[in-house]
Design a protein around this nucleic acid. Structure first.
Length: 109
DNA sequence: ATCTTGACCTAAT
DNA sequence: CATTAGGCCAAGA
């Protein structure tokens, strides 16, 4: 039944990210069923550019570092988007990362 | 069709 | 503590 591809599953999770919260690639990959497919999550984000319901700016790496900010349109667009949601970013890194970290495995509904 | 690269993560050395 | 290696799946110089 679940004929959804890897990407669609990623989008589904990212879409469920609440406001003012962030998650990591590995966390999403883990929920999907491939804890080591975190690379695909990032790649899926690249394709997510065409989608609107996929807030890729809310997805960061395990260190809370905005590794993918370089792929956004602007230079610090990703940072501004996060700050716009109440998330503080310092030196391309999320402040209190674990504080704003949203675990899809825990809040997944 | 084959090879390389890629918004990563974990474990091992 | 720093570096290396392995793994995952997809898209394209």
């Amino acid at each position: 039944m679940e004929e959804k591809t890897f990407f669609e599953r990623v989008y589904e999770i990212v879409r469920k990210i609440p406001y003012g919260r962030v998650t990591s690639y590995g966390a999403i990959a883990r929920i999907i069923g491939s804890p080591q497919s975190s690379r695909m999550v990032g790649y899926a984000m690249n394709a997510a550019h065409s989608l609107e319901d996929v807030p890729a700016h809310r997805v960061v790496n395990r260190n809370g570092l905005l590794t993918g900010k370089h792929h956004f349109q602007g230079t610090h667009l990703m940072q501004q988007l996060l700050e716009s949601e109440g998330i503080k970013v310092k030196d391309d890194k999320i402040v209190d990362f674990k504080h704003v970290f949203w675990d899809p495995a825990t809040a997944k509904e």
